[in-house]
């Protein structure tokens, strides 16, 4: 409201708008209050996790939820010794499957988007229909399948199904994007003598970097967080991914809260780092569920 003082009197309509706007602005304080309250409770568990992660056992017994000195950063060393292997396994699994998934999905989506081949819509429906199939239906036969294939307790038992399943949504999203790309550009390239592969490699892909980033990040998130499939297909501790590794860690270290919480913190760091560098893609990817309807 101070902004308006001393300025020439605006016309009636304007001052009405300004009045409303002023009302919105002066109302902002309680919005901050409300959001602050929500955020406080959302972050409270994480803050307490970090506090506990620096405690030894007596400190936790006496003052579980407040900061106590001396801090015990050695909890992190202890947790790292156990969790680091699981993190590495998750990076290998999610990394390999995201690379394979993106390559296959991009090629298939390109085929669907740019060539009017006979049977295109039938094949595309064959991909889309899988969006309706929940994991509950396929879990048991898929388990018996990988068992028969002799894949149990190998890295491939995760990577291959992740590539297969991850393609479905990615093809759906990428096809829409590829179709919307301007065709003139590809024409021009063809006239200049580029073959189909070059058009795809040097024009299609570079133009689609950001949407490919979105589907890649969504895939990493979902494979990184998968619990059930690694749980039923992996036995050896050396291959466990982060989710089931942490679950086993919790069972083994129950009530030794300091290192346990330190392990939870360490486990959260890789995705937070990824988020820090690609927050825009994250936000788009996470809300791109909205594309579906």
């Amino acid at each position: 409201m101070t902004v308006l003082e001393g300025q020439p009197q605006p016309v009636q309509r304007m001052s009405l708008g300004a009045g409303w706007r002023r009302a919105w602005r002066t109302g902002d304080w309680w919005r901050h209050l409300g959001l602050g309250a929500f955020l406080f409770f959302m972050f409270l568990p994480f803050v307490i996790t970090i506090i506990i992660s620096f405690k030894d056992i007596p400190q936790f017994d006496h003052f579980p939820f407040t900061v106590t000195f001396p801090l015990h950063p050695d909890n992190y060393l202890e947790a790292w010794r156990i969790v680091s292997r699981y993190i590495l396994n998750s990076i290998i699994t999610s990394g390999a499957s995201v690379v394979g998934m993106v390559i296959l999905a991009a090629i298939a989506a390109w085929a669907f988007a740019r060539y009017p081949f006979p049977g295109r819509e039938i094949f595309f429906f064959g991909v889309l229909a899988l969006l309706m199939v929940p994991g509950e239906l396929t879990l048991i036969p898929a388990f018996l399948l990988v068992k028969d294939l002799g894949l149990l307790n190998t890295r491939w038992v995760l990577i291959a199904p992740y590539i297969a399943g991850g393609q479905v949504f990615a093809i759906f999203i990428l096809r829409q994007f590829f179709e919307a790309l301007p065709g003139e550009m590809f024409e021009a390239a063809r006239i200049d003598g580029a073959n189909e592969l070059q058009v795809f490699r040097h024009i299609g892909i570079p133009l689609s970097q950001s949407i490919i980033g979105v589907v890649a990040i969504m895939h990493v998130l979902s494979t990184w967080n998968d619990v059930i499939w690694p749980l039923v297909t992996l036995r050896s501790n050396e291959l466990m991914t982060l989710t089931i590794g942490l679950y086993a860690f919790r069972t083994a270290w129950y009530t030794i809260w300091g290192p346990l919480m330190a392990g939870y913190v360490i486990a959260s760091i890789p995705l937070i780092i990824l988020f820090a560098f690609t927050s825009r893609l994250f936000v788009e990817g996470l809300s791109s569920g909205a594309i579906k309807m």
Binding site: L104, A108, G126, L130, L137, A142, L145, I163, A164, Q167
Partner: peptide
Amino acid sequence: YRFVYLMLVPTFALLLTFNYYPAFMG
């Protein structure tokens, strides 16, 4: 369009193995 079908082979090979077969089997 034979090369286009070729582009779809890996995708559908994986989908048939790890998605369609288990779904119908289930």
